[in-house]
Design a protein around this nucleic acid. Structure first.
Lengths: 218, 218
DNA sequence: TAGATTGTTAATCGATTAACAATC
DNA sequence: TAGATTGTTAATCGATTAACAATC
């Protein structure tokens, strides 16, 4: 598979994840789909669907449409979830626990290999997925060890500490080689721009929703 | 406070929630902030900050900047979280449980007043916040009752069921008057366009993050 | 071949930013 | 008044969409 290399917008990547979810659902009914059908589910135009997909290559068949399995495979590769990506969780409060006891929420392509907290009462406890909560102080050692012993490079973390600890915890992770953070806190992280951060804030999303509920113009 | 009524873009509302979070943090240090400082934290331009805010009115003082408390109050009102918004949770699995036992994640302005599930083993159980999990079949009755007895109108729901049940559960909620849904599932809901849906999908966000990690051009 | 749908170009639309008059 | 920063206009940039040649 040849992928074009170019400037890709955040919007396109967001939609890519939506396409993937839709395609997996559509696959239950059919083998093929065209840009018109995809657009309808996405609430957009067929032109956008075709343009989005053509960002990465030519995956369709003129006169027919797209093979769903093929498209799923391609998007899966583009998102890098055709392989297992090793992830650590920083913070084993309610949110961290929810994830570690419900690994399905991560979807395919991700594996939690370490869970860290700074609370002495939590450290040493075994989690639902049979990992042991480790001292966040030892994250450095852990990452180095995973590399040395298993040749597993860990550069992604889910940040699920309390918001007061978010910045300091994130900085610690970055210091130890983490360059991708899923930020589950409300805190707006200020990090080296080389570090990728994706925010995932329930309260912010609820606020958005509430605004639209109150200003519904539909 | 006069608010201009006009077409407001989703981007602006998203940023509004970010401004609010930043302002609350900044308030710990200072009383005032200007568009340049705000822009720096937001990774954007001061022009955008001023334009965003001026969408809703004139809140700044030329030559000085913005009063943080004032701005917090205004944005809080714009987002409708100066009042309590009553919310129900549909689905009391790991995700629903995480929220109901960790109400802080909702932020200010939201109150969970009902929790529903279809699992007979869960119905009747008392949750961490002292609510009783109710049969999702009775959501209709519950909403009517809240209106009649307490004059509380419930139109927002957090959808935290398993993805296989997402569409059918959402349709049920909408039938009973819900018009705003925070969708915590991976399922792409297809509902009447009058219904506002905000998606909050961990796996999708992880996928996005993974893409950028792999294609880091920073 | 005729019909259908892609991939892509060009036109349109909307969002961001630069620049500056207004004004504290 | 001089200095600073807003609010807003106009210019720029980027994203969406319409339209159509390419082609299955």
């Amino acid at each position: 598979m040849k992928l074009k290399k170019m400037e890709i917008s955040e919007r396109v990547v967001q939609r890519l994840t939506e396409y993937l979810s839709i395609l997996k659902e559509a696959r239950k009914q059919d083998n093929e789909i065209n840009s018109i059908e995809l657009a309808k589910i996405m609430n957009t135009t067929s032109a956008q669907v075709r343009k989005d997909l053509s960002t990465f290559g030519e995956f369709g068949v003129r006169g027919k449409g797209y093979d769903i399995d093929n498209l799923i495979e391609i998007i899966t590769k583009i998102l890098g979830i055709d392989k297992i990506n090793h992830v650590i969780i920083a913070g084993h409060g309610k949110m961290g626990e929810m994830i570690s006891s419900n690994l399905d929420v991560l979807g395919e392509g991700f594996k939690i290999v370490g869970i860290f907290d700074k609370d002495k009462n939590k450290i040493g406890k075994t989690t639902a997925n049979n990992l042991i909560v480790q001292d966040i102080q030892n994250v450095d050692e852990f990452i180095k060890n995973m590399k040395k012993e298993f040749n597993i490079k860990i550069d992604t973390a889910i940040l699920a500490v309390v918001k007061e600890q978010a910045q300091i915890a994130a900085e610690g992770l970055v210091k130890n080689g983490i360059c991708a953070i899923l930020n589950m806190t409300t805190y707006k992280l200020e990090l080296n721009e080389k570090v990728r951060v994706v925010d995932m804030d329930i309260s912010a999303k609820l606020q958005e929703l509430n605004f639209w509920r109150l200003n519904n113009t539909n």
